[in-house]
Amino acid sequence: MLTIRQNLMETIKGGNPDRFVNQYEFMELIMEAPMDLPLAPGPGTVVKNKWGITFSWPEGQIGSFPVHDDEHKVLKDVTNWKESVKAPSVFYTEEEWAPAIEHANSVDRNDKFVTAFCAPGIFEMTHHLMGIEDALMSLYEEPESMQELIDYVVEYELAYAKEVIDHIHPDALFHHDDWGSQISTFVSPAMFEEFLLPAYKKVYGFWKENGVELIVHHSDSYAATLVPFMIEMGVDIWQGAMTTNNVPELIKKYGGKISFMGDIDSGKVDHPNWSPEEIEKYVEIACKECGKLYFIPNLSQGLNIASFPGVYEETSAAIDRISKKMF
């Protein structure tokens, strides 16, 4: 039997995997790494992160979100971004790094990928600072300022990447940036190519030059039209590929250059009335239609969790069962 790592490599290189890669199993996420997370930690909390962005998670709601009323919006006028936006320091004490280093050292790298985690993404950072409507409008109306702001975020990402690389020497990177809704991308491919492709080429290029073998990008959305750019920027696996993308067709078209992780939409199976039968059904459809290569069956959610207890584990169990049938 192949190790988890070998099985992943066989799957994405078009070799001979001996089972499906099961969801996030190949990524050992080092979440202890000090980072400036874009969220409020729990229900009933409000926090301001190091960029000055306020995140709120009201009691009874399902998650946290950036607050953009007049009082809390960090960036009100993008042409003034230099005055309003100050990137925080990327330096943390050795003490702060210690738990992450210990976790990374405990991982058998022959079996799994020590994986660094990065969120928010570059586009997400712009809309956390100014609200999504302003961020999108500014790409049209103030392209120069937006370009400068994006460059500034890239500088920050590169500086942080250097710290992570120096401390835990990751084998893989799991990087978030949602680029669309279920049926459309936020911006046109042309605009994406102009603003985000160069930014990500720099960021993902840097991780790769520094020993990272695998870039996994999360966007649980429609993004089929952006796949050529993902390939160009160095993404090895697109996580969050929803069914609206027609994943089987993408595999036919781009398999070998990039792999797809998802095709089981969280929205369809991860709800209060979830059932093993329903999960089994969607897992089976995904695995049968997508096949054994360049595909990792997975819930579209951007971490190895689900909204409702038991759904993630049941999905893994269903994938194991279908592996036995298909391999």
Partner: peptide, 17 residues
């Protein structure tokens, strides 16, 4: 145009604006 994939979410926002 949005429905057929010729326009994107940003275009809908621009139209609204």
């Amino acid at each position: 145009k949005y429905e057929t994939g010729e326009y994107y979410i940003a275009d809908l926002i621009v139209a609204g604006e």
